[in-house]
Simulated assay, not measured.
Amino acid sequence: MALEVLFEDNHVLVVNKPAGLLVHGDETGDITLADLAKEYIREKYNKPGNVFMGVVHRLDRPVSGVVLLAKTSKALTRLNELFRSKKTQKTYWAIVSNRPKTEQGTLVHWLVKDSSRNVTKAYSKENPAGLRSELHYKLINVAGGKHLLGVNPITGRPHQIRVQLASMKCTILGDLKYGAPQPLPDKSIALHARQLVFEHPTLKTPVTVSAPLPESAAWAPFRS
Rank of each mutant, 00 (worst) to 15 (best):
L6Y: 05
F7W: 14
V15Y: 07
N16C: 15
P18L: 12
A19D: 14
L22R: 04
G29E: 07
D30S: 02
L33W: 03
E39S: 06
I41Q: 05
R42S: 00
N46T: 04
M53W: 02
H57W: 05
H57R: 03
L69C: 13
S73Y: 09
S73I: 11
R78K: 10
N80C: 02
E81G: 00
L82A: 02
F83W: 11
K86D: 00
T88V: 12
T88W: 00
Q89Y: 00
Q89W: 05
A94C: 04
V96C: 03
N98W: 13
P100N: 10
Q104I: 01
D114V: 01
S116H: 01
N118E: 04
A122D: 09
L131I: 03
E134K: 12
L135Y: 15
K138S: 09
L139A: 06
I140R: 06
A143Q: 06
G145L: 07
K146Y: 11
H147Q: 03
L149V: 02
V151H: 07
P153C: 09
P153I: 05
T155F: 02
S167A: 15
G174C: 06
A180N: 09
P185Q: 13
K187S: 13
S188M: 09
L191S: 10
H192I: 13
H192V: 14
A193K: 10
Q195D: 01
Q195K: 06
Q195I: 00
L196E: 10
P206M: 03
T208E: 05
A211Y: 07
S216A: 15
S216T: 15
A217K: 15
A218V: 14
W219F: 12
W219K: 14
F222I: 08
R223H: 09
